[in-house]
Computed example of a mutant assay.
Amino acid sequence: MTISRYIAIIALCLYLAIPALGAPMEVEDNLGRTVTIDQPCQKIVFLVENALNTYYSIGDPETVLAIGDNIWKRELKEDFFKAVDPKFDDKVRIGFDAGLVSLETLAAEDPDLVVLWATSPEDENLNAITETLRIPVYAVFITSSGDMYKQVRDMGTISGKTDRASEVEAIMMSYVEEVTSATEGIPDEDRPKVYWMWSDVLGTAGRESGFDDLIYQAGGINVMNYWDNDASYVEHPTVPLETLINLNPDVIYMWYNEKLDPEDVIRGTEFAGWRDINAVKTGRVYEIENPFLFDAFSPRMPMALMHLAKNIQPELFADMSIDERMDGFFGEMYSVHYPGYAAM
């Protein structure tokens, strides 16, 4: 074979390979929208933190181009983000004004993909980015534990690391199985009724929500399943206090609240009207104290499930040590230790 022919064959092979490396792909986001992307994406902007957590367990941190400047409770999370992404502090921050993303800053970065939270296809930021900037947008809206597994698979597609995504999904499922293997056989009538209390107190998790799934997997049943009202199906319904008293939950589980703790609900004068609720009478009011470690809308969903299970079914999980499992979980998911986030 002559050198010129050899070179020609090599050139042809490279030419044929180029479309495969950047071949457009379609992925369906949580709103059912079809998003066309170049796979793998090389410049991604994350305007929603939970998907960023997922991506860091799968994709290359170098492909995270920018992040939103709206990270909640930043002090709980920055050490972790710096551990899994050494260039985290150097990422461009995309600002918001009255809830609206800065299109100018976003356009200047020229990303391949923007990932944001949106509850409907009519979301203002979603439409502004797609219609004004013509940038593909993957919308995140978590309403079930299944949505979290889908997010893992989709981040694998977006990053081009589908094998790692399969590993992450399997890791999550293995930790979940530690709980569900003990709770799945509990009849509904034997499950404590659980009221999930968001920070707006009378705002709760509806039947079609991620926490409805977790409560059931943890051995309880969402008290919204006993409310004969269409609002009970909403992802975040507001419940009249009289209705909540009549529903009479056995357990109240609070999301992290800077202004309230369980003792306020049990004994506080502001909650005097709650005194006849079973959960209050028996002192079964609990709180997610660390919204980072126990973020159910991130790959740490299994840790949130364990937190719920230990309080909803204390006899079943008396010997379960979440602290012991936490280090192993962070190691498998992010290759760092917990606490401290030292590299493994």
Rank of each mutant, 00 (worst) to 15 (best):
M25T: 11
M25D: 10
E26Y: 00
E28K: 15
E28F: 11
D29Q: 08
D29I: 09
L31E: 04
I37F: 05
I37Q: 03
D38H: 12
C41D: 00
C41A: 10
C41I: 05
K43P: 10
I44C: 13
V45N: 04
F46G: 02
E49W: 03
N50S: 10
N53E: 14
N53T: 01
N53G: 07
T54E: 09
Y55S: 10
Y56R: 06
I58S: 15
D60H: 13
D60G: 07
P61Q: 06
P61K: 01
T63V: 14
V64E: 01
L65M: 03
L65E: 12
L65K: 03
A66Y: 07
I67T: 08
D69N: 10
D69W: 01
N70A: 05
L76R: 12
L76I: 07
K77L: 01
E78I: 15
F80H: 00
K82R: 15
K82G: 10
V84P: 14
V84G: 14
D85H: 02
D85S: 07
F88D: 10
F88C: 01
D89M: 09
D89I: 06
G95R: 03
F96A: 08
D97V: 13
G99P: 00
G99E: 07
S102A: 02
L103E: 06
E104D: 13
A107H: 00
A108V: 03
P111L: 01
D112R: 12
L113G: 09
L113H: 00
L116V: 04
